[in-house]
């Protein structure tokens, strides 16, 4: 009981920190989550976190929140999921309420704009690094390379929903690897 309570508090603080330092949405959150969850805490293995990111993008809800719920549930069930979700959204709520209430001119403040320009540049690097790290873990053969390239092209050049891209990829994975397994 005490262990579970302590574990949930840890989940809350870890996801609070992740929520506090993520700019630019769920994709930019991936390196922060990977570092905390895989490298620092050992809550998931490297290839598991890729599956979790994939699932988080394929079900309803924001990616960052979905990933938090995934990790939280796997550690401490519903209590863990709730701790992680409250952790990841609390910084947003506090900061937005302060800004909505006090700083009507937040967006046009010179210092805010300058600091944000730096953050925006950094976010490009973060997302690109997340892509490379995902590719390193996920693309293991020529088939994987074709799938990654197809997903990239569909995402940039078409408006096909992520769900269908995932379904297509899952089906081709089943067909391709079953056939290859049978051929051996």
């Amino acid at each position: 009981m005490i262990d579970k309570l302590r574990g949930c508090w840890e989940l809350f603080t870890v996801f609070f920190r992740i929520g506090l330092f993520t700019f630019g949405g769920g994709f930019a959150m991936m390196p922060l989550i990977e570092r905390e969850v895989v490298e620092v805490r050992g809550w998931a293995k490297q290839d598991e976190i890729l599956d979790i990111f994939a699932l988080a993008q394929s079900v309803p809800g924001a990616i960052g929140i979905n990933t938090a719920v995934f990790i939280g549930r796997r550690l401490y069930g519903l209590a863990g999921a709730s701790a992680a979700i409250v952790g990841v959204i609390t910084p947003s709520v506090i900061i937005i309420l302060i800004i909505a209430h006090l700083f009507a001119q937040f967006q046009s403040n010179l210092y805010v704009t300058r600091a944000f320009s730096g953050v925006k540049a950094s976010v490009i690097g973060l997302i690109a690094a997340a892509a490379l790290r995902a590719a390193r873990g996920a693309v293991r053969d020529r088939f994987g390379l074709v799938i990654a390239a197809a997903a990239f092209a569909l995402s940039v050049f078409s408006s096909l929903s992520v769900v269908w891209v995932m379904v297509l990829g899952g089906l081709s994975g089943i067909l391709y690897y079953r056939q290859r397994g049978a051929g051996k």
Binding site: D51, A54, A130, A134, G144, A148, G169, G173
Partner: peptide, 12 residues
């Protein structure tokens, strides 16, 4: 194995 590379493609 078919879905993981998609994440890389989408994030890229």
């Amino acid at each position: 194995a078919g879905i993981r590379p998609i994440v890389a493609g989408l994030v890229g």
